[in-house]
Design a protein around this nucleic acid. Structure first.
Length: 593
RNA sequence: GGGGACGUGGGCUAGUUGGAGUGGCCGCAGCACUGUCAAUGCUGAGAUCGCGGGUUCAAGUCCCGUCGUUCCCGCCA
């Protein structure tokens, strides 16, 4: 029943035909999107990547051909040859780009049949589980094709732009060396060195720095990266970065290049191009005002600081927090005075989930201030708070006290939750900013030591280098993040190019010289052979595509993504392997109870 | 490692305080139809209510466990 393709050649895509083509003999190939059998008349909507065209078969024109065409079913792959004809005006389909024409078939070839799809490709949206199991069918959907067209445009624009600015695209190894700290590595057993392992790169960090040492000046790569950590809607274990590095630059030079590139991408994606230069905000300001190192600036609702106000005051929880070097952060929410107890409880739960001990609040009503704090502070004390934060009738004051970072973060999360609930975000607006002056180190109470907040090759700010032997929490880094609508789009830094400074950083991180040599010996050697000052950045392509596509999950812009448990539902990986494969690798598996 | 949500013919879903045959829309198959385009009309097939256990006279519904998906916390230099 199936026909051979033979020498039949496609002349047009299914989105191509217009009235200008009327009279031409055309050949289209694609999938049967739908068909309507009307007895002596049969219509097929033929679909390919570029669109849909209506094909018509008519008994009075060719009864034999109609009979053959009636065998058609959804998703069959067919080739149609016929004449492009104009439709009568009353038969125009204004929804279709090709809706003023159709193809009067003179030949139909069945190139392949198809099982009925396990879910409907149009109309209702099947569960993601099913869509991912049959991903190749899900990807046929117009919405998905739009996303991947966009993603292609993004990477194309990046390549064009960076080429025009003198960057070389250079590949770096996928099989590489495990590095301490950072995310968990994916390991690959080395058959040729039993008991030893390669690691998949968390990023090409050291390699791009080595390329600068090698004198390549400007490098980029659209690089696959791997991190063996738990997934989220915006986190996949393998993901793609636009990885860049430049020699002889300061942060401003990086910003200039990246802003140009981001604007080129917005242009290519058909979005309004953002104004330059992008806003810059120090890390401390971002945390203090927005409770996040990736603030969403599409709405206000700025946090205020009441630490001084509560210091040595009669409310023991907050006074205590301040005495221990912590902070009390406050948020004035317009119109929230009349929220129900339930609403406050829910917001309070949200705060606790993000580390707050609790949420204190004042409801500023016409005749009274309702607050659990009144019994500590008295009516005057409450009024004083309202004045300090500028709260007026109808507002609520939400407060969280504790250590500075936890309080900022928890209230920042409350800020986002309120924005979600109250619909404060203008979705049409795009807000880009640079967060700068990150701290170099962050303290982990569990391990009682400092870790590099960005990574251990990040250069401290020149003035802070002397602090490396003092208070590490005071050392700021030449690190920066690019934030897009409250998402971290990318991050980078100016790197350390001097061996003596690199040694100091390793020492500050508690890495002995022997450990540093073992893990990074090759890199320390390289630093000593004439390393130029250099720096760079990496932007998440998947996240960029997701945000520009307006998608809710990275899975919508990755062709074959993993689900939350880390498995691929289509290939059913990860999976067991043959014993023979394990033997070759000298690997034995053991049961864990 | 922890918390929340969901799981009913192929798809999406309804199913009340536990109560008679699990209902609808879409898809699928067949018939009819010369202007359809979410075609229409008629007919028909299709369900271990994720799985296992428990409570009960009676469980899709309540309880426990488990599997899968999902969102979040931890984690992600």
């Amino acid at each position: 029943m199936l026909d051979h393709l033979g020498q039949t050649k496609r002349t047009h895509h299914c989105g191509a035909l217009r009235t200008a083509h009327v009279g031409q003999t055309v050949t289209l190939m694609g999938w049967v999107n739908s068909y309507r059998d009307q007895g002596q008349l049969l219509f097929i909507h033929l679909r390919d990547r570029e669109g849909i065209t209506q094909i018509v078969f008519n008994e009075s024109v060719n009864a034999e051909l109609l009979a053959k065409a009636k065998q058609v079913r959804r998703e069959f792959v067919i080739a149609i040859t016929g004449e492009c004809i104009a439709r009568d005006e009353k038969n125009f389909n204004p929804v279709m780009a090709t809706g003023e024409v159709e193809v009067a078939a003179t030949e139909i070839k069945f190139l392949n049949d198809a099982q009925t799809p396990p879910f409907e490709l149009e109309n209702t949206l099947a569960s993601e589980e099913l869509r991912l199991k049959y991903r190749y069918l899900d990807l046929r959907r117009l919405e998905m094709q739009k996303n991947f067209r966009l993603r292609h445009k993004i990477t194309l624009a990046v390549r064009d732009y960076l080429d025009s600015r003198g960057f070389f695209e250079i590949e770096t190894p996928i099989l590489t060396k495990s590095t301490p700290e950072g995310a968990r590595d994916y390991l690959v057993p080395a058959r040729t060195a039993p008991g030893k392992f390669y690691a998949l790169p968390q990023s090409p960090q050291l390699f791009k720095q080595l390329l600068m040492i090698a004198g390549y000046d400007k490098y980029f790569q659209i690089a696959r990266c791997f991190r063996d950590e738990d997934l989220r809607a915006d986190r996949q274990p393998e993901f793609t970065q636009i990885d860049m590095e430049m020699s002889f630059v300061q942060p401003d030079d990086v910003f200039d290049i990246v802003e140009g590139m981001v604007c080129a991408v917005f242009q290519a994606a058909g979005h309004e191009v953002p104004a330059r230069p992008f806003q810059r905000m120090p890390y401390n300001e971002a945390m203090n005002k927005y409770g996040s190192d990736k603030p969403d600036l599409r709405f206000g609702l700025e946090m205020q600081d009441l630490s001084e106000h509560f210091a040595n005051g009669p409310f023991p929880v907050f006074a205590d927090a301040v005495a221990k070097g912590g902070a009390v952060k406050a948020l004035v929410v317009k119109g929230a005075a009349t929220w129900s107890r339930k609403q406050y409880d829910e917001i309070g739960e949200h705060a606790k989930r993000h580390g707050a001990g609790g949420l204190a609040y004042i409801q500023v009503l016409e005749n009274e201030n309702k607050s659990a704090l009144t019994k500590f502070l008295g009516a005057d004390g409450i009024t004083a708070i309202n004045q300090a934060v500028g709260a007026t009738v109808g507002d609520a004051v939400l407060m969280i006290g504790g250590d500075w970072e936890t309080s900022c973060n928890a209230l920042g999360q409350v800020r986002l939750e309120i924005a979600r609930r109250e619909n404060l975000t203008n979705e049409a607006e795009n807000k880009l900013l640079w967060v700068v002056d990150f701290p170099m180190f962050e303290y982990h109470a569990d391990d009682k030591r400092y870790y590099a907040k960005h990574h251990p090759f990040t250069s401290p700010i020149d003035d802070d280098i002397n602090n490396l032997e003092g208070d590490l929490s005071k050392v700021r880094a030449k690190a920066y993040d690019l934030v897009f609508n409250g998402s971290e789009l990318g991050g980078g830094s100016i790197r350390i190019h001097r061996s003596d400074v690199q040694a100091k950083i390793f020492k500050a991180l508690g890495l002995s010289e022997a450990e540093a040599r073992e893990k990074f010996g090759f890199f320390l050697d390289a630093l000593s052979y004439g390393t130029p000052p250099h720096g760079g950045i990496a932007l998440g392509v998947d996240r960029f595509a997701m945000l520009l596509a307006g998608a809710k999950s990275l899975r919508d812009v990755i062709a074959f993504p993993k689900v939350a448990s880390g498995s691929d539902l289509m290939t059913d990986s990860p999976s067991e392997v043959d014993k023979k494969q394990l033997d070759e690798l000298k690997i034995k598996t053991v049961e864990f109870s």
